[in-house]
Design a protein around this nucleic acid. Sequence first.
DNA 1: TTATGATGTGTAACGGGTTACACATAAGCG
DNA 2: CGCTTATGTGTAACCCGTTACACATCATAA
Lengths: 331, 331
Amino acid sequence: MMMATIKDVARLAEVSTATVSRVLNGNGYVHQGTKERVAKAITQLNYRPNDVARSLFKGRSKMIALFVPDIMNPFFPELARAVEDMAKKRDYTFVLCNTDDDPAKEVNYVQELKQKSLDGIVIVSSTISGDFIKDVDIPVVALDRILHPSLSSVTVNNRQGAREATTYLQELGCKRIAHVAGPNNVSNAEQRLNGYLDVVQEEDWFRYSFIEQGGYHFDEAKKATERLLTKHPEIDGLFVANDLMGVGALKAAQSLGIAVPDQLSIIAFDGITLGETTTPTLTTMAQPIYKAGARAAEILIEQIEQQNDQRQVEEFTVEIVERESTRRRDA
Amino acid sequence: MMMATIKDVARLAEVSTATVSRVLNGNGYVHQGTKERVAKAITQLNYRPNDVARSLFKGRSKMIALFVPDIMNPFFPELARAVEDMAKKRDYTFVLCNTDDDPAKEVNYVQELKQKSLDGIVIVSSTISGDFIKDVDIPVVALDRILHPSLSSVTVNNRQGAREATTYLQELGCKRIAHVAGPNNVSNAEQRLNGYLDVVQEEDWFRYSFIEQGGYHFDEAKKATERLLTKHPEIDGLFVANDLMGVGALKAAQSLGIAVPDQLSIIAFDGITLGETTTPTLTTMAQPIYKAGARAAEILIEQIEQQNDQRQVEEFTVEIVERESTRRRDA
DNA sequence: TTATGATGTGTAACGGGTTACACATAAGCG
DNA sequence: CGCTTATGTGTAACCCGTTACACATCATAA
């Protein structure tokens, strides 16, 4: 059978559609008796308002989107889960977009979603033009990476975390600490690199050849680590820009017959589950991933609902999680 | 500035909105010259039709959803990616729903999405009532698990794959092969169990105590494996119902000091990336996960667009991927 | 008793598209 | 030349809610 409409309810309850609408939304005055008749009609017809009609009138859709480079990257599912949970909690529908870090795709998604009256976007991106995104006339919250100074954002203290990670390796007794870096143009990767440099740059052993690019990819990081360990066999500590790459580094050490953590301590960054399943498990600077995602969604929804119009910038703190890939060196 | 509407275009091009609509959709007759004037006006105003208004009239939204138990389970991101890619290719917006295997949540999502005129659902579920889902009056395609005989579905040959996995262990020379099983009520888990039984049930050593429940969870599977290996130290081969559990089994063996693959060969099922990052890497019966997801979405869209109304049932084939967790036993 | 505000409800416009229908003109054909 | 069909375009209804506005009734205070 056809979905019942507000007219059917109105007819059955012998009132106008305006009255039904008022009952539905709890607006205006409605006589108690009328309210009950309408409620009864609604139940009887199993009526559910058509959200499309509502959206058309209101110009809002109760939908938010999350843009990620690729949901298959194990960092993003937890973020997606967090945003979806918050969306559901606040009665929003959750749209997921994989952008592949392609600015054209990102722009294209924005346009298509705006045609659908999407209410807002949580975006993880390093590629989209800040100038484009700041002019998108719906609320946007940047997550994990900063996109434009005018946008609300939720991030972590990458630089400080990187400093702590590197210092931790020093405290374990590591004498030569290298870094497998993330991509050049990504804010959080640069911050992690800087944090590493903050700690080691003044050391007399330090040279820039202790840094290799791993581009946030498993394979690239594996190769980068192999290069590092080959040209500098003296390396006894490794700070890797994220966990996915950290696992690549683990693999590289294995393939070169270098024992982790006996000969080499490895610490990475992010705190994704993947790091718990390797052998050895991966020591890491863990982000509160879920919390950050949920908070980003919450800020977005507050902005949508005008409860809080101004820009919010929040930075969470990372915490070391000691696992098996690091160990104190005997002096 | 406000978004331009079809009326603005009509005014600028000096035609009626009907004519603009015809140009937009390539319907009916429009004079060549008129067409050009309208096209010019559209460009000039940077006009994009309002999809909400369209949806209201058509009763269709160009949105499809994917229901998964939990996107944080590493089996699902690839599926999600596949469905999203296909959705995008066919100009559909992709909605992701985490159901936590909770039938109430599933029903609730269906209702909310139907209010938004969602066009169809790809669903991975073992919990939703078949009777409920078959009466949802929009197209539904079951993926990975069978839900109801009247629904289109895309699955893999779980039973045959399980037979091959178990036989493979036999061929390696394993004499006592145990199974860490998935949940009871999930069709593919039962099929995998049955495939295992097909091969070993007639063996004289076989007893049901060689089977333990691991419920498709990492931790549960780890504990189940510990129980198995403790009560049956003679086990030299293990078929695990999926890769996530397989990694749990690997951990269990490690914690008991049992060397994989030297003392124990482990083969799992699914072929997710996670199995490539462990040490040893995990031998598995790999599903064409991406292909299956993409095909499910394609069938769904065909059904939505009435190109193909009848039920489709497709079964893909799994293939063994030999990695490091299995090895031939010396006779 | 009357002015005033609170309560209760319906009418109709509106949001932004799509399309059935009517009408007009032009072209093709016997 | 008259009839039929193809081409071209506008009017208005429709999709399904929401809400401004008008109007009535009722209660309360002065």
